[in-house]
Simulated assay, not measured.
Amino acid sequence: MENVFNKFFNDYDDWYQTPVGQFVDQAETQTLVKLLQPKAQQKILDVGCGTGNFTIKLAQQDCQVTGVDIAPNMLQQAQQKLQQQQLTAQLKIMNVEKLSFLDNSFNAAFSMAAFEFINDIQSAYQEMWRVVQPGGHIVIGTIQKNGSWANFYESPACHGTAYEFAHFWTAEQLIALDPKHFVQQQDCLFLPPNLPENNYNLKADQNAAQTTNIGGFTCLLFQK
């Protein structure tokens, strides 16, 4: 995994305060929760937790969350946000390709917008599988190859950002990691980037899904 986010971390959270960022966050969160189905007191692993966006959301639901990332600067921001909100979660510097957890340590595991920056996604998935208990859910959320958002992030407009180091995957490529245990795919972000800000809302995104085949972001559910 390229440790690009130890460099591109200072303004990472600012985008989530914009109207577009808030919409994206709502859409991705709704999609994740639908598939992960988190419950209070569950032990849940957040792979590539970054500044703790989803770690915090699940901690607010009384889940016992552990977030791992290879970028210490981002983990420091996550810890500060947890403290500000008086929430508790475990944060660890760790590479998903070699997790230092025992087998069957978690009720569920997920990764949101991190597989784009992982070198060996097969090893990453196998490690997530290993540490989840039988019957547990594994959700991989990623910017979808050939979708409008991936096309934008691959364009010259995003050179000089973290996305210059990203590799985007199709849903089919990720399902192929473990087709036997694949359960469901759920897409969002059917609206393309660079629309006027007031165009972005969940209802408009649902309407766009009627005419757009590929969501800009996809979540894939596997069950152990």
Rank of each mutant, 00 (worst) to 15 (best):
V68S: 03
L99E: 02
Y125T: 03
W129E: 13
M94H: 05
V65A: 01
I70A: 03
Q86D: 11
F115Y: 15
K81H: 09
L75P: 08
N73R: 10
Q61T: 05
P134T: 04
V132N: 13
Q85F: 08
Q90F: 06
P72T: 02
Q60H: 09
W129N: 11
M74S: 06
A150E: 00
L75E: 02
L91P: 03
V139P: 01
M94Y: 08
V65D: 00
V132R: 08
M128K: 07
A71I: 00
G136I: 01
L102T: 12
D120R: 09
G67D: 08
A109R: 04
A78Y: 03
N104F: 12
R130Q: 09
T88G: 04
Q122T: 15
I70Y: 02
K98N: 15
Y125K: 02
N146R: 12
K145N: 13
I140A: 03
Q133T: 10
Q60W: 06
I93K: 07
Q86S: 14
G147H: 06
V132H: 06
A59V: 09
S148F: 04
N146Q: 15
A59R: 00
D120C: 11
Q84K: 12
M112T: 13
Y125R: 03
Q76G: 05
Q133K: 13
I70D: 04
Q77D: 10
F152K: 10
